[in-house]
Nucleic acid binder design. Sequence first.
DNA 1: CACTTTAGGTAAAACGTTTTAACGATCACA
DNA 2: TGTGATCGTTAAAACGTTTTACCTAAAGTG
Lengths: 343, 343
Amino acid sequence: MTLLKRITITDVAEAAGVSVSTVSLVLSGKGRISAATGDRVNAAIERLGFVRNRQAAALRGGQSGTIGLIVRDPGAPFYAGLLAGLIEELERQGRMVLLAPGGRDGRILEQGVESLLEQGADGIVIAGYPGLNGTLRERASRAGIPLVYADRASHPDTPDMVSPDNMQASRILTEHLIARGHQRIAWLGGRSDSLTRAELLGGFCATLLRYGLPFHSDQVMECESGPQPAADALVALLRRNNGITAVVCHDSRVAIGAWFGLQRSGKSSGEGGLESYYESRIELAAFADVPEASLEALPVTWLTTPACEIGRSAALRVLQMGSGERQQALAPFGVSARLIARQ
Amino acid sequence: MTLLKRITITDVAEAAGVSVSTVSLVLSGKGRISAATGDRVNAAIERLGFVRNRQAAALRGGQSGTIGLIVRDPGAPFYAGLLAGLIEELERQGRMVLLAPGGRDGRILEQGVESLLEQGADGIVIAGYPGLNGTLRERASRAGIPLVYADRASHPDTPDMVSPDNMQASRILTEHLIARGHQRIAWLGGRSDSLTRAELLGGFCATLLRYGLPFHSDQVMECESGPQPAADALVALLRRNNGITAVVCHDSRVAIGAWFGLQRSGKSSGEGGLESYYESRIELAAFADVPEASLEALPVTWLTTPACEIGRSAALRVLQMGSGERQQALAPFGVSARLIARQ
DNA sequence: CACTTTAGGTAAAACGTTTTAACGATCACA
DNA sequence: TGTGATCGTTAAAACGTTTTACCTAAAGTG
């Protein structure tokens, strides 16, 4: 395992009997070079196993070919999906992703941006930090590179944001239930201080009203996002016996809990298992960040935020901004959701 | 948004009234510089908002400060976890992650490695490609940088591999069930052509035998990894009425299916829901790539492969190899699992 | 034929940093 | 006072590309 001397453009030039300029021109396909010379150079490149040094190229030329990304929680399935979409799109454009560590701490975020600038990223995407930071925008703009925020939570409408269209998602899910004949639909779960929940609930409420269906506060049940609290909450909700025939769950854990709650509250025929559900009078629907095995297993209609779409859009947006297109031409970007119906 | 001229080390030197060499020395903390000069330089850096250009530094110096990573399927929760662990550890060592696009295709993988070499990665980690490729190893070694494979599947024992210790994981889970008094334990799920399953099943079988418990082929049930097939398989297994009191499930989807199968086969009291399970005579346990909401909701004892541990280990390993430690000193790396007991 | 144009190619100056060898000054020591 | 050390700093040569301006020979033009 001897460390061979790095093969440079100079070696190639020598081997092909041309100048370094010519090799560079062949590499980038820019200047005017005859087919014969081109072939000769390419042959030499192949023969020597030359790999171009992007750092040197970037040093002189400008673009490093990388887009920086900071994810607060890269292990969370949603952000993993976002990352996957982002990578895929950037790859299509011949760019790579430079991943800076995120973290709860805002200071780490700033440090991450700094590192990305050091590494010469051509643009920066920040995911999972709902509180947007003016300082960072300022920092990036001073360095002359575009910065965009992407998240599952909703953002104010500015052109450098990519987020799901929660209102629309909620409308789709609600209309689906209405189309299936439900008149009294309940809402379960979510903390009332969440912006996402507010938007989802807003879409829900607006859709009910648009179709002339009743919406009273006793149709909405707040609860912790765990199976147990959700089950309890659903039992309590149904005990009021207010004619509910369908329940929209704020997230997948709530949906699982709701399912157990249904079993317990006797809305099923008592056999247990999947079959019993189909005889129940209550239909379940849920929002989900991400496809989940438990939702596939249960008879729940669910609607996912397409994480990888958001990633893809963020990628396109940052490249767009980088290529000098005028900012005002870019509208805020809302990504729409996907419905997976059951039963 | 005017694009300011980039602030360079030269500007700093001028502002501080010293030479560029001095600034560089201060930056890297290498040479002998007086406290006074150091302060003066740092003040100038601060004042001008200088960011060091790593590409230029790498061009001259050597190390780029990045580790390349190729993940076949970055959207899958397990690899997301791996990525998270990897990032965290690399950050601790002051490195960043350069993410090349993966893909089913082996050709894309090679191209990814090539891109990483172009970008000057100081090392490469490849995750999720079970079929290891000698060409890539060769490529990396010719470029003089370390390459390690990391995966959830098991690998042959070579020092450049990081993978979970499946035998040990299986032993832990099986011993847990034995300790709880189970004598006849069944195995459910997994395709028989999977190396991972073979190792898990090997550990299971070995542990049973070590404790003097019977192991017959009718205790093992192969099935597709979905809720429905698993449910059917469990029903069939229990119908044989062979005294089974516990079932080890190959993965989380199988576990969910097994749960429904239990309900259906009357091993529960018929009330449905969580409560009914506790009266059932059958205990469930499962392996899981990754923590999952459905497993938390069900009374299943499960054992996860700590994805982020694997990522972390891969990071350490690649840095270790890069820092010129002797290869033979490095043992193959098996990462152990974590048990989450229920009931 | 004298002239412009064009095609194909090259020399050389950047790009921003690191590092080595050298330098003057100060200091210790006999 | 001469002789090395030691200290703090610096000039200058890399590192591997890209790009601009320039060159030469051949081809076109009147």
